[in-house]
Design a protein around this nucleic acid. Sequence first.
DNA 1: CCTCACTGCATTTTT
DNA 2: TGCAGTGAGG
Length: 764
Amino acid sequence: MQQDSSEHYLLRDLNPQQQDAVRHVHGPLLILAGAGSGKTTVITRRIAWLIDEEGIPPASILAVTFTNKAADEMRERVQRLVSVPAQQLWVSTFHSFCTRILRREGDRTPVGRDFVIFDPSDQKSLVKQVLAELKLPEKQFHPKKVLELISDFKNRCLLPEEAREEAMDPWTRKLMDAYELYQKGLKNSRACDFDDLLLHTERLFRDGALQEVYAQRFQFLLVDEYQDTNRAQYLLVQHLAKRHHNLCVVGDEDQSIYGWRGADIRNILDFQRDFPEAMQIKLEQNYRSTQKILDAASTVIANNTQRLGKTLWTDRGSGDYLTFKLVDEGRLEADWVVQRVIEEKQSFPGVRIAVLYRANWQSRQLEEALRAVNLPYKLVGGVKFYERQEVKDLLSYLRLVANPFDLTSFRRAVNAPSRGVGPTTLAKIEAAIPEGGTPLEGMAVLLRSGALKGRAQRELGKWVELFRRVSHEREHLGLAALVRWMLVESGYAQSLEDEGTLEAEGRLRNLEEFVSAATEAESLGLRLPEFLDRVTLASDADDVEEAAQLSLMTIHCAKGLEFPVVFVVGMEEDVFPNRNARETDEGLEEERRLFYVAITRAQRKLYLTAARRRRIFGTEMLGMPSRFLRELPAETLASPIRWGTELYQAEQGAYAAPPNLARGGGTLSVSSELQRIRGFFDRVKGIAEREEPDEAAAALPQATASISKAATAWANGTRVTSPRFGRGMIVASTGSGDGLTYTVRFADCGEKRIVQRFGMLEQE
DNA sequence: CCTCACTGCATTTTT
DNA sequence: TGCAGTGAGG
């Protein structure tokens, strides 16, 4: 029996653990899939096994992933494996799954079935409106922070009234008012934000009867990237699995990197507690990387405590050493990476290379360096296509067609192109909206009342007419034709043509591209609402071109991908690990997991780089090598990373005449450069004691200056004391003369900005 | 009511 | 550095 089944085409070339996972049918199953362990193969074959071997109808299987791309790929691969049509198989992201449910069952939610999905920019404008209405100053109630808090509550499935119970202090109470009003705004606009999709669906499934319907429907559940689920997603899965327990979750606790978005690593750590009868399979054989890369990854991640524990191994041989490069300055880092890229491409024509970084801003310098040598690259992330102003403008028209209650889109569309409708007119329109009516109706009322003057009356009259006409046109126009019709009839295209600038031309081209996207969607059978859903739920990770020769992206975006050659840049404290994460153990562990993800993307060659100095928004910042570098085992590195004097002596020449100073024409003097090195050096060694100054430094007045009236700015890294804050170190400076201001990192009270003229700083 | 210019401030990571 | 938010002028 065993012998026979291992010959099965769905089990071919699988290791024993993988085969066990594929053959598992009933009951809960936890697959702990290490990086590069053939996870997707196992999942798709298991689904195929259920369908072809067990005769489970595809319609009873639900597989959930985190990105659309992963879902598409999974569906395709399953379809290639099975003999029956698999269209009925549900493979989707959590968010699109919930959208589908809400479009069917939405009558029971506050927003009905014809809701629109608000993207982050819509959310922002709504929350700003709410803050204004509550007279909460944006200085204290930063819109982004408020939204983050609201999102936190939603991810924990708490509605305003429930969240309020937790709110003790007046500040949080005020925030709860904002949350409540925000939800009201969404309801009035018949809109869901991303979190609402999960929240509302989870609420629906609390209803026993409805839960029963869907639990019956989806007899077999599969959740990919289970370590990234948040509370709402967790509950959603529990509701559906409660009845039959046919739940297979796949994940890797070491790759849990979305804690900041509400993901709860405990979901995977506690799976065995939730389902004591669960079978657990560990996939530890890695088919991606060389042993050196795996050793580095394993050693690093072993520093984490929140793990179930896995050890990756491979039979692919030990491979190349990792290469670490420390450079003087950010720009040199980019140059160095570009040179290595060129070399790699020469040695291995057609090789795919990825440059990974912690945050999107780090791509800029890389892009500049790449453009300087005309090296083509693909940038993933950053400003999304659908977030461009012109695309959002056109979208606001289309959304208004799909859902006339959408006030946010109304506000946007009514002034795109500008029709002279400002806050005053807008307020009048909104006041005129009849109870339970739409903004358009409000506008119609206002027009009839004759409260508007000549031009506005005419313009807006035409505008109302536009939407009256579109309801007719909609019936006999296809999706693409409808989009184009709107683009022309709204006058938006014309207004761009009238501008005649190069920029406007580019915008028109983007809109053309948008129309072709609609054409493509139409050919897939999508109608306007589904098209709009798809557009807003599209993510960065979805448009990764894996075939690209050279890709630049964040590590988050790179999860699930692999590249023969990988660069991880910006290996500095406060960059990676990110400065916001260094305070807590959980934060640091998540950063470490992120580093683990980065390392394990590499198949055969891994480069790591750091810069001593870096311009971060205009000011020179002094960096310290990332603590994660210390965690790398020396045996995996081409040359040891030396901490202490050697690190700098090796490139002493570079300091004597830093080449970038001449080029940059910067304000830095060689002396301040020397102080920089010294301060940096001290920090790396972690000692307070100073070495004897060398001749060059001794000859410089600043080196011995001890009063705050120094003629020249102190260098970053200079140790100072302040009568108010105690001992600290200069980490940045701006301005000059009387305006000269330092950012000083104090041992006891964090970073302060101190104007030199008043701060009474003394050099230590 | 729009546009331009200035200033002050900010960067995680994304469905 | 660059963007967004603010304020003055047209």
